[in-house]
Amino acid sequence: MLAIAFYIMAAVTVLSGALVITARNPVHSVLFLILAFFSAAGLFVLMGAEFLAMLLVVVYVGAVAVLFLFVVMMLDVDFVKLRQGFANYLPIGAVVGVLLLTELIMIAIAIADRGAAAGQSPQVYGPEMSNIEAIGRVLYTDYVYLFQASGLVLLVAMIGAIVLTLQHRVHVKRQDIHTQVTRRRKNAVEIVQVKTGEGIKE
């Protein structure tokens, strides 16, 4: 049962990965990317790393892929033009691609051979504890300093986005709910006697 699930999800991951780079429509590419993320998350669940799986869905599908979609849909990128120099870049691209592929294969062999960390297997908290619980136990205790510091890094990112992009335009009319609600009839409406044939002067 597990093996069937693995093969289905692995096949979907590889297939959608291939479709990401071959699809002609960039929006379809992004959608296939999301599919690849989802099936990779499924693979993580099969390995018992449900926290990583959730992270993949929340961060990559929820934020990164949506950001890609925004960029593809909002910016006017001419994909036909981008593809024009394809033949010129092919040799150097092929070299880089082959290099990356060899590296990946070598890493995969090394990991299959000896495991990821040299000689040390990752600490296991025992089968009764899920790894979300294990992370939760150390996040606010052993790593509270780093956790809070990361929070400050995010705060700086937020301040930066506001400082660099927020502009207070002077001539824009804004809704001010306070003045709206506190407006009284007497300072908004004036009753005047209009003489026939003369109208109202300013």
Partner: peptide, 16 residues
């Protein structure tokens, strides 16, 4: 990790 987090906190503020 402390090295990296400290460095990023400093660098991000300096970029801005």
């Amino acid at each position: 990790i402390a090295l990296y987090v400290g460095l990023e906190l400093q660098s991000l503020s300096l970029y801005i």
